[in-house]
Design a binder for these strands. Structure first.
Lengths: 101, 101
DNA sequence: TTGATAGGCAAGTCTATGCTTGCCTATGGT
DNA sequence: ACCATAGGCAAGCATAGACTTGCCTATCAA
């Protein structure tokens, strides 16, 4: 089964933990896996294993919502909002009065 | 467990069939369950049972993405894009140049 | 009243997926 | 060389969720 681009984006956004991760990356870009784990624990009280977060990051990457760059033994994660902007305008008509106040 | 408003919206959008339904309601508002079933079959080739679509509509309603009004034995469904507009700006910073061309 | 239409409810099945556990690789410091 | 750190891989489990089937209710037309 082929998974379209929009499909991956919406699937990625369906999980609350993944949305928290995006929140963290908005707050500070270029975090490592361990940093994200630590912040999810301290700021949101989420007690998830490192592997769980790693799998979430993989889902976000496959949706191109997160880009990663390797540097030595560190892997930094960056937010990419471009897929969001493209996917959201699907049902939002340009003529909606409330959207352009 | 309490399900927040954003949670319901993203969960509702996670399913491709539900996104198709929203597409149909953008195309023509105020359709009944049977109309939506017929259009999904003819226009998209989806062979789903009436109950499946009914359950999808229930999910969309609980996310307030679809509002329904009863009239006799008919139940008309209307699209409500307001939750979308609110939920999407979460990671889209207002200063993004591409978003305001 | 009878029958057809529009919709609802409630199991039951089956797959997807979130999470864990355990082990493995690679890089950097000392 | 040694060990700690940063991350990856793969199997296993357990719940959520999509879909079906079967039956029930309500509205309208004849």
């Amino acid at each position: 089964m082929v998974s379209s681009m929009a499909d991956d984006v919406f699937k990625a956004l369906a999980d609350p933990t993944r949305r928290r991760i995006l929140d963290e990356l908005v707050d500070r870009d270029g975090q490592t896996l361990f940093e994200i784990c630590a912040r999810l624990v301290t700021k949101h009280g989420l007690g998830l294993s490192r592997q769980a977060i790693s799998q979430h990051l993989a889902v976000l990457e496959s949706a191109d919502l997160v880009r990663s760059r390797r540097q030595g033994r560190y892997k930094f994660h960056d937010l990419n909002t471009e897929p969001l902007e493209r996917v959201v305008t699907r049902w939002l008509r340009p003529g909606t009065p409330e959207s352009t106040p």
